[in-house]
Design a protein around this nucleic acid. Structure first.
Lengths: 270, 270
DNA sequence: CGTTGACTCTGCCCCAAGGGTAGCCCTTAT
DNA sequence: ATAAGGGCTACCCTTGGGGCAGAGTCAACG
């Protein structure tokens, strides 16, 4: 005969749990002192406690355990409980796997988004850009409106997207609104669908400058790049490009001060 | 500007959840009518709601989400949250897999225990039993005491056990207490350890009878089998055997009325 | 026998993430 | 003006206990 504290140490259930199980009639002490309310447990209780611990370790709910122990005669019923629980657990595993997968995906993309912060220069450069296959949505409007366009491309192309989003600007001069813009994503393969064109965007030599900070301040970078082009006497072709090296992530806006946007202006072949 | 009901339909969060998120300052409506307390949401709220839903789908807690959204500037912090959550989820997966495994194991063993209920005859039979490798614990005492003995073998031999438990009775006549008993389990392989012998139990022709019901009533079956042996003029050898086809499971006692015990008495080769 | 320290009792509040309900107030349409 | 439908707060419920307060109990020691 053990007091609740002793029994707790013996069977590995906390006193709180023992009192709860008593209340739920899952594990009723073999003797309860009427006068004092003290609970006293015996070996049969210990056996029962072992079973309960085992079932709890398989994440059965207390009410399930209660039913299982009540219908202990009926082995078939018990088996059905086990099968049901197994199905529940397998379902949970599948769900957690899905979660792990999307976590991994977003970790990857957020990391890629963060990586580009390192080792970038903020001076005007001349470089080669490669020809890539893109999916694009062209529209007239304001810069802000390319968000939904990227969303549309993302939905249509899904896993075929293989690089940073970019915008093509078909206007020669800066337009606040009603600008002629094409939102593009590099893709591995894909077919044009309603509103989305798929084609190659040809590369070549270009003048490029990485702009750091929110989009609102990008005009300063445009000034710099234009000054450089003028000083070199280059002629550039439309459309100009903005590659969003680091912008608002899929989920988080991030800190706009850390946004990186590369402006590319293709140099006309001489 | 949407009322809470409209906004709920738009963003897929219940009204209850929206009120809770407001209380936790996770998603504060853009306008709250001071006089009426009515909540009104706008597009920025919708964006925030989308993010919250996404994070909730990855089982982030509300407080985690709150922190993530507060420190939204700091991308690195966010990444660490994601990594942490991924580790948590992977841990959960592992745990659930372990549970699924032990559930599968107990389903299997309980099923095997149940299967033998079908297609068994309760008449005395003559049959061949095979020679099997066994691990045994021999002791003097009462029948009840073989429970711990089986436990000991189970612990020592673990996954090498490959059949139903049995007992060997070395006494010629029935003894209430101080009987000479060996608790045995068939095993695939194994080495004798302190108190456990490992050896072959030779088979041969035997007279067998399956007893249905609790052990207390087994003497009736012994009478039947003895009468049969006498009528045939057989001589049997010691020890006699009891094979526990269906008894109390690892966890559940089951219904003793359904217990099945096969009594085997080896016939002395003539 | 009294006291003391350790133990136990009940009852209450707490966690997460809401669900459900009651009673009252508000908006909007007829 | 009135009625229907929405929205408000406040309260209790869920699971499986954890923690604490105040009071009662047990066993040992002097």
């Amino acid at each position: 005969m053990y007091s609740i504290g002793e029994f707790s140490r013996i069977c590995g259930l906390t006193i709180k749990a023992l009192r709860l199980y008593h209340e739920k009639e899952l594990l009723v002490p073999s003797i309860i002192d009427d006068a004092t309310g003290y609970r006293y447990y015996d070996h049969k209780n210990a056996e029962q406690a072992r079973i309960i611990l085992y079932l709890r370790s398989m994440e059965f709910s207390l009410s399930d355990i209660n039913e299982m122990l009540s219908d202990a005669d009926d082995d078939i019923e018990v088996l059905s409980f086990l099968e049901k629980q197994k199905a529940v657990i397998l379902g949970k595993i599948q769900k957690q796997k899905d979660i792990a997968k999307s976590l991994q995906f977003i970790i990857k993309t957020e990391k890629e988004n963060g990586m580009s912060l390192q080792n970038v220069s903020f001076d005007v450069e001349e470089k080669e850009v490669e020809t890539v296959l893109i999916a694009g949505v062209r529209f007239k409007g304001k810069y802000d409106e390319c968000g939904p366009a990227f969303g549309k491309i993302g939905k249509a192309m899904g896993m075929n997207i293989c690089g940073k989003a970019l915008c093509l600007y078909y206007d020669a001069d800066y337009k606040e609104s009603d600008a002629d813009i094409e939102a593009c994503m590099p893709i591995r393969k894909g077919k044009p669908v309603e509103g989305i064109s798929v084609r190659e965007l040809s590369g070549g030599k270009c003048v490029a400058l990485i702009h750091k900070g929110p989009y609102q301040t990008i005009s300063r970078s445009y000034e710099k790049i234009m000054a450089y082009i003028k000083s070199k006497g280059y002629t550039t072709t439309l459309p100009s490009r903005e590659v969003y090296l680091k912008g608002p992530g899929m989920i988080f806006k991030g800190n706009p001060e850390n946004y990186l946007t590369e402006i590319q202006m293709i140099i006309e072949a001489v």
